[in-house]
Design a protein around this nucleic acid. Sequence first.
DNA 1: GCTTGACCTCAAGCTACCTTGAGGTTGCAC
DNA 2: GTGCAACCTCAAGGTAGCTTGAGGTCAAGC
Lengths: 146, 146
Amino acid sequence: MDKNDLLPIGELARRTGLAVSAIRFYEDKGLIAPYRTMGNQRRFLRSDIRRLSFILIAQKLGLGLTEIEEELSKLPRGRTPTQSDWQKISRSMRGQIDKKIALLSLTRRKLDECIGCGCLSLTRCQLYNRDDRAGTGGTGPRFVLD
Amino acid sequence: MDKNDLLPIGELARRTGLAVSAIRFYEDKGLIAPYRTMGNQRRFLRSDIRRLSFILIAQKLGLGLTEIEEELSKLPRGRTPTQSDWQKISRSMRGQIDKKIALLSLTRRKLDECIGCGCLSLTRCQLYNRDDRAGTGGTGPRFVLD
DNA sequence: GCTTGACCTCAAGCTACCTTGAGGTTGCAC
DNA sequence: GTGCAACCTCAAGGTAGCTTGAGGTCAAGC
């Protein structure tokens, strides 16, 4: 909690590769909660670098910011997260990756079958099963392998 | 090319599970090009069902509509695509799936290493390498495992 | 011939995820 | 104590991928 350990937003941006505006946006969404100087400037913990890195990884895996917030909410508010705090989250991530790989493998297998049998009737082959999505509704961008 | 083989948009919507508005949107984006009746109504080929199914699958794999259009542009304009036309595209898709699985496996391996070695310094461990994305720029929603 | 449902166009709206711009303040260095 | 980069807020804009709404036409049955 040494004052020298607190980073201004620009520094955090440099370290993570994120845009300053993006970090502010994440704060707005509740993903990160910096301290403020008396002059109202944001000051971040070193551990917030990891927090942001985590956000980036999770995004690559297809999680939305809301889901990411849920994961991050498992971390202790107030104190710097310990190794074991992060481990829990990492393991949960591993599960998500496993599922995603399984789904991709399945898709690949079905695609192979379609090529193999020569019918190539994607709908009949269940590669894309229309009932899977009938009524999924919702709006906004579609994400991968939901 | 029998007239009875031409489907109105609602029928296509029912068959694919897509919304009518979505199909019209895809036409706008050049992903599909129906005929018109003299009364200006859209009439689709049966093979357009497959075309739309393909769009849905490709989206699940994380392709944007622009990329999907590129794939589809390999199909013959004018005549109904043959089996071998579709096979080419399917194979290209298979490649994409393979790459995606490889990337996920890599991510998983790195995550394991991080948990294993106990450092959990995501940035240092290269799980998320900031140089990878510095200057990737661009706006809009981020997609998975680019 | 008239009703009804499926179709048409065009513009605006919505979600997710940010960036850009205007207009103003802080804080460190000289 | 002053200059200037880095910070602040708030509103509006942009991309991707659609949906919704207003206002109107087409086609098949009764």
